[in-house]
Amino acid sequence: MLRLIIALLSGSFFGAGLFISGMTDTAKVQGWLDVFGNWDPTLAFVMGGAMIPIGLAWALSRRHVTALTGQPLPPPPSREIDTKLILGSVLFGIGWGLVGLCPGPAIASLTYGGPGLYIFVAAMLGGMLMAPAARRQLDRAVPAE
């Protein structure tokens, strides 16, 4: 039960933060990405603000092996920069630049986003369903470095 309450509170804070910061406004995100045009630097403050709590969480997690809910904490992510990371980052960036949304803000915008957003979320979910097969294919094509 504690895990569900924490998930509800975390998701609520995250969604509210996305909305208040303007991350659900595709024009604001695309303005951030338009570095050679009418660049909008305000999104840097949102990203910087997100780095503070995650930095604190990583620092605290080094001293603990379980979460507040008693479940084991996952190991730190790999710091290796490989072909898969670069390819995934490029694909994510293309989608983010074309639409102006990434998964969190897209889901937070579902209640008012309109038909274009529904198509984006459907395509995103389709990509998530296809990801395991694509990952296996990529693992065969690009061996570990």
Rank of each mutant, 00 (worst) to 15 (best):
I6A: 11
I6V: 13
F13V: 14
F13H: 00
F13M: 12
G15A: 15
G15N: 03
A16V: 14
L18M: 13
S21G: 11
G22R: 07
T24N: 04
T24W: 01
D25Q: 12
L33G: 03
F36M: 10
N38R: 13
N38A: 15
W39C: 05
L43M: 15
F45Y: 13
F45H: 06
V46E: 01
M47C: 10
A50E: 04
I52Q: 01
I52A: 09
P53G: 00
I54W: 04
I54D: 00
W58L: 14
W58S: 11
S61H: 03
R62Q: 15
R62M: 14
H64T: 01
V65Q: 14
Q71V: 09
L73Q: 07
P74R: 00
P76Y: 03
S78Y: 03
S78I: 09
E80R: 12
E80C: 01
D82S: 10
T83I: 11
K84E: 12
G88R: 06
G88E: 06
S89N: 06
V90C: 04
L91A: 15
F92Y: 11
F92G: 05
I94P: 10
I94V: 14
G95P: 13
G97W: 06
G97E: 03
L98N: 09
L98P: 14
C102M: 02
P103I: 11
A106E: 09
A106N: 08
L110M: 13
L110D: 03
Y112D: 13
G114C: 03
P115G: 12
G116V: 02
L117A: 04
Y118F: 13
Y118I: 11
A122E: 04
L125A: 15
G126D: 04
G127Q: 08
M128Q: 02
M130H: 00
A131S: 12
P132Q: 10
P132D: 09
A133C: 01
A134H: 02
A134W: 11
